[in-house]
């Protein structure tokens, strides 16, 4: 199993201006995230709004650089890539966005949208480009005659197919999917998830799958990383985490997900998500955790291995005795 993506301590800090005469505030969107992702595997990043999952996606997609940390993609340094390797990196990582209505240029035909990556990055002839576009359209389940239609003539699910096709035109090895199905209807969601699974099997793609929906994640992921306020709470194999979540936040999330909380004790997190501008001093979840102690408020727990996964909780051992769900 070859490692395709390896991140060490990825951090992204935004300076929020507060007028001319005050120091800008520092917002740590992602604080020291490390993971490895192998070809053909799916790592799901789960969390609520403001947990840094989208920022992580943008860093891995090279849309914005990390403030610190290391990121290697396919053996290349992706933080400060030498200019000669930038095009290769570009072609290795692609992204699919959440909202298929915003991610396609409304003034361009589907064929043009799909052709564009080839025009920019290759010297293929017009005929060859067209052949590849039609091939890709067939692969994602679009009909050839839809080649010359505009995005507004498609439903949300079909648009997401177009977005996936565009991302795959350059034969990337890593596809970052930022909530790719959460804007879609139930019946269409399943179609797109199936497509993603099929494409992974066929092309050996690695997915960095960003989602807030644990139901979707349990279906599609191999590994799961739970984030809260820019920090990893629990990270490990899907089976482990879903069978016996060791972090109170993971437990809360599972209990709160509709349709998954039926047989569990209903834990409802207290209060609101704290502002990322002013995170709690100790454990970031301490303000809402039902098991909080003084130690939690003082001391931020480190991510440590336990029961074949990583967990960042002082008292994770306590949940080992709980029966597996």
């Amino acid at each position: 199993m070859s490692v395709l993506v390896s991140a060490r301590g990825l951090t992204r800090v935004y300076d929020i201006g507060r007028g001319w005469f005050r120091e800008p505030a520092h917002l740590q969107a992602v604080g020291g995230v490390s993971f490895e992702l192998a070809a053909g595997h799916t790592l799901a990043v789960v969390g609520e709004s403001g947990c840094g999952k989208s920022t992580l996606a943008r860093m891995v997609t090279l849309i914005e650089p990390p403030s610190s940390g290391r990121l290697m993609i396919d053996g290349l340094n992706a933080v400060t890539p030498p200019a000669s390797e930038k095009p290769r990196l570009r072609r290795t990582v692609q992204i699919v966005f959440q909202n298929p209505y915003g991610s396609l240029n409304p003034r361009k035909r589907v064929g043009t949208i799909l052709e564009e990556p080839l025009i920019i990055n290759t010297n293929l002839s017009k005929q060859e480009r067209r052949r590849q576009v039609l091939e890709m359209m067939a692969k994602v389940g679009l009909r050839p005659e839809q080649h010359s239609r505009y995005p507004h003539m498609f439903s949300g699910g079909q648009r997401q197919r177009i977005a996936i096709a565009r991302a795959l035109m350059l034969s990337p090895k890593l596809l970052v999917a930022d909530e790719p199905v959460s804007a879609l209807d139930m019946s269409v969601q399943a179609q797109v998830l199936n497509l993603l699974v099929d494409l992974q099997a066929e092309l050996g793609l690695a997915y960095l799958f960003i989602s807030h929906d644990l139901g979707v994640v349990r279906h599609i992921a191999h590994d799961v990383m739970i984030m809260y306020l820019g920090v990893v709470m629990e990270h490990g194999a899907k089976e482990r985490i879903f069978a016996r979540p060791l972090h109170p936040y993971t437990q809360t999330l599972l209990a709160a997900t509709p349709g998954m909380g039926k047989n569990r004790k209903r834990i409802i997190a207290k209060g609101e998500l704290p502002s990322p501008l002013n995170p709690p001093a100790g454990c970031v979840f301490s303000t809402r955790c039902p098991y909080v102690t003084d130690q939690c408020r003082r001391e931020r727990p480190v991510l440590r291995p336990l029961d074949e996964r990583l967990v960042a909780c002082h008292y994770a051992e306590r949940f080992l005795e709980q029966p597996a769900a």
């Binding site: 997609t61 990582v93 992204i95 966005f97 991610s103 920019i120 977005a163 565009r166």
Partner: peptide
């Protein structure tokens, strides 16, 4: 601010292309 512009950047579109081919028609 829309995703299609970011998507064009991710596929490697240059600034001129972004300005005149992606954004201007909209």
């Amino acid at each position: 601010a829309k995703d299609y512009v970011t998507a064009a950047r991710v596929i490697g579109a240059g600034r001129m292309r972004l300005m005149f081919k992606e954004v201007l028609p909209n």
